Amino acid sequence: MDVLVTGGTGRLGQRLVGPLREAGHGVKQMSRRGTGPGGVRGDLSSGFDLRAALAGAELVVHAASDPQGDPWQVDVAGTRRLVEAVDRDRLRHLVYVSIVGVDRIPYGYYRAKFAAEQVLLASGLPVTLLRVTQFHDFVDFLLDSARKGPVLPVPMGWRVQPVDVGDVAQHVVDVVGRPATGGVVEYGGPEELAVADLARAWAAARAPGAHVVATPVPGKLGSAFRDGAAVPAGGEKGRRTYAEHLQH
């Protein structure tokens, strides 16, 4: 089928193209600049070129997001623009890539992702909300950013289940080919880990000599992560462990 991937130049979007083509689909990657092979221009924040980018799409993988900028403009209002621009006569399935815990973790970006989910649920389109956990390389980035010289402070008692971006890409291809669920499905890595254990494994592989210090995080955010809000309640799991990721 004809597939459009929003956020086509992002961490996941780039990894989706190969598996989708191997599954026999024609793929267009939508981004603001429309660069790369199969690239088309479309701007969720303004609506510019959206209708042209979505023309003929039978499957849409909505992976675009703006966590560093204004997610209410891109993720929420942009999703509303996407819903208005889609070819309803052609569309068979829209898969939205969201995050495990957006409904439970009190964090501004997560609230925006949850609001975008509600836009899609109210749209009348054949949708599946695919909530995934944090990618392995994003965990690396967070830990590297948190390190202060020889000290690596991490939240005490937080639980996560990081996942390989390649595993997610393959799972998205599987989900796209299934009937729309009209609701939420979850996907995480193969094992649940304490953030402190994750940090020790990362430090041993990437920052020898760094000393991990687990620090209590008060408030509702810390409580949510300690209670497992970032861990899937069910759903399928990836295969590649964080330890395997660190070996490369």
Rank of each mutant, 00 (worst) to 15 (best):
V60S: 06
G157P: 01
G189L: 02
A63T: 03
P153K: 10
H62N: 11
F135Q: 02
V176N: 00
A180P: 15
E191C: 07
R178E: 15
V163Q: 06
V185Y: 02
A77W: 00
V176P: 02
V95S: 01
R92G: 06
S98I: 09
L59A: 13
A55W: 07
L59K: 11
L142E: 14
V176K: 01
D89L: 12
L54I: 12
P126A: 00
L120W: 05
L129P: 02
V176G: 02
L130G: 00
D164V: 06
V173R: 03
S123K: 08
P179R: 09
V61S: 06
L142A: 13
D174F: 00
K113L: 15
T133R: 01
R81L: 09
D49Q: 14
F141M: 13
V76G: 02
F114L: 11
H171I: 00
V95L: 04
D89Q: 15
D87E: 11
S65D: 12
W72D: 12
D164I: 06
D103K: 02
V175G: 03
V97P: 01
R88D: 07
P190D: 05
V127W: 05
V175Y: 01
R88Y: 07
V175L: 03
R80H: 08
T181M: 08
T128S: 03
A63Q: 02
W72Y: 13
V173H: 03
D174V: 11
G101D: 08
L121K: 09
A77G: 00
G183K: 01
A57S: 14
H62W: 09
L59Y: 14
T79R: 08
V102H: 04
V160S: 04
P150C: 10
V132L: 13
V160H: 04
Y96N: 13
P162Q: 04
A112M: 10
D87W: 02
K148E: 13
Y187D: 05
P71F: 07
Y187T: 02
I105F: 07
R80I: 00
Q68R: 13
R92I: 00
D89I: 06
G149E: 10
D144N: 12
G149C: 10
Y107N: 09
T128V: 00
V184P: 03
R80A: 15
F138H: 13
A85T: 07
A180G: 10
A53P: 02
A63H: 03
V163R: 08
D87Y: 05
E191Y: 00
T133M: 02
Y107R: 13
V172K: 00
V83Y: 13
A146E: 04
L121Q: 07
V61K: 02
S65P: 11
Q161H: 09
P190Q: 04
V102A: 09
V95P: 01
R90G: 09
Y107S: 10
E191R: 12
K148V: 14
L193C: 05
V119K: 09
E117T: 08
T133A: 06
L91G: 03
R51S: 14
V97L: 15
R104D: 12
